[in-house]
Computed example of a mutant assay.
Amino acid sequence: MSSYSPDLTLAGRLADAADKITSARFRAQDLRVSSKPDRTPVTDADTAVEDAIRELITAERPADTVAGEERGGSASAAGRVWVLDPIDGTKNFLRGNPVWATLIALVEDGRPVVGMVSAPLLGRRWWASAGGGAWLRDDAGEHRLSVSRVSELSDAYVSTTDLGAWTEYHSRAAYLAFLDACWESRAFGDFWHHCLVAEGSLEVAAEPIVNPWDVAAAQVLVTEAGGRFTDLTGAERFDAGTALSTNGLVHDAALDLLRKP
């Protein structure tokens, strides 16, 4: 069984509070939706979750700072920063698709040390802490996670985002060369494909554009499961705008193909 540090225990309480709000508002007939300047949607559930989590953090950890998708803040600030994505997968949430989650990470001086991913409609919660391993709780109970042992890209099961994003933000040619080198690809998307790498169900999850709150929790989850997490240049960062999660064994080969020509 996993051990719970005070910070991990708090992250669990934050996730519990988020789950109550998101579960109640999912498929609500009066759900309010607006658009942010980048044209991505935001619902009243997104803002309610972030406000509730911020209030709890202020009460429990008044010296810590917070960076969230909806209310702002710097995920790269010095000291202890709680990095939040109140609903990762908002488009799924507002379309009635149950694949969404609340993402919570504690970052200390630029390094994620606690990660919590809670997907209540999937009945799954993933978490990790530095030195404490990566874990999943689902209908079958609580399990320690470990990445797969697949060592060749030609045998790798991968998940990436859509072709349009690779074309716009990174390299269409690199994306296609990478997919051609792998065994099978899907687009599970958002938080889920990083969690699946940590579970050992996938070998690679790659994204050409991400925000810090999208992947801070994923970095500690994947690395504590025995994998590697970097940006697409190979730097071990969650705040550089791109992301690559792997089982570690195929990481360098994936990087070689995914780097811009």
Rank of each mutant, 00 (worst) to 15 (best):
A59M: 13
K36M: 08
R137F: 08
V113C: 04
R124K: 15
S185I: 05
F93K: 01
N247P: 01
A134R: 01
A45E: 00
G200C: 05
A243Q: 03
S154T: 14
D256S: 14
A105S: 05
L257Q: 06
S151H: 09
Y157K: 14
T230A: 11
S201K: 14
P37M: 13
H143W: 09
D239T: 09
T242Q: 03
K91S: 13
T167G: 07
A24V: 04
V99N: 05
V83D: 05
S129N: 03
F26K: 02
A134E: 01
A63D: 15
A254T: 11
Y175A: 13
N92Y: 01
S118R: 01
C182D: 09
E60W: 07
W166I: 06
S148Q: 04
G115E: 02
D231M: 08
G73I: 11
A59P: 08
S171M: 07
T47K: 10
E70Q: 06
L196R: 15
D38Q: 06
E142N: 10
L56E: 13
P212D: 04
E199N: 03
S201E: 15
L257T: 08
A17H: 10
A59C: 08
L14V: 05
V215T: 04
D7H: 14
L249N: 10
F238W: 08
A45V: 00
L106G: 05
S201F: 14
A235K: 11
G248C: 08
V81C: 06
T161K: 06
S185D: 13
A11V: 03
L14M: 06
G200A: 03
L196V: 12
P86Q: 01
G68F: 04
P37S: 15
D252K: 10
E55R: 15
L136V: 12
P208L: 04
I21G: 00
A181W: 10
S146K: 10
P41W: 03
G123Q: 10
A156L: 07
P120K: 13
E70H: 06
Y4C: 13
V220H: 00
D214A: 03
L153A: 12
A254S: 14
T65L: 05
L249F: 13
G12N: 12
A181N: 11
S2V: 13
K20I: 11
G132L: 05
F178Q: 03
V220N: 00
E55C: 13
F229E: 03
S2G: 06
V250G: 02
P212K: 07
T22N: 01
E55K: 15
W192C: 10
S34L: 13
N211A: 15
P112I: 02
L31E: 02
G68L: 03
S159C: 04
S201C: 12
L84W: 07
W100H: 02
T43H: 00
D51L: 14
R25N: 08
S74C: 05
L255A: 06
A216T: 05
F93V: 00
R39E: 15
A18F: 05
C182Q: 09
T102R: 00
T43R: 01
V197D: 00
V66P: 08
L8F: 10
L136T: 11
A235T: 14
T167I: 10
G141L: 07
A75N: 11
P62K: 11
L136N: 06
S3Y: 13
T65G: 07
D231S: 12
S129Q: 13
T65Q: 07
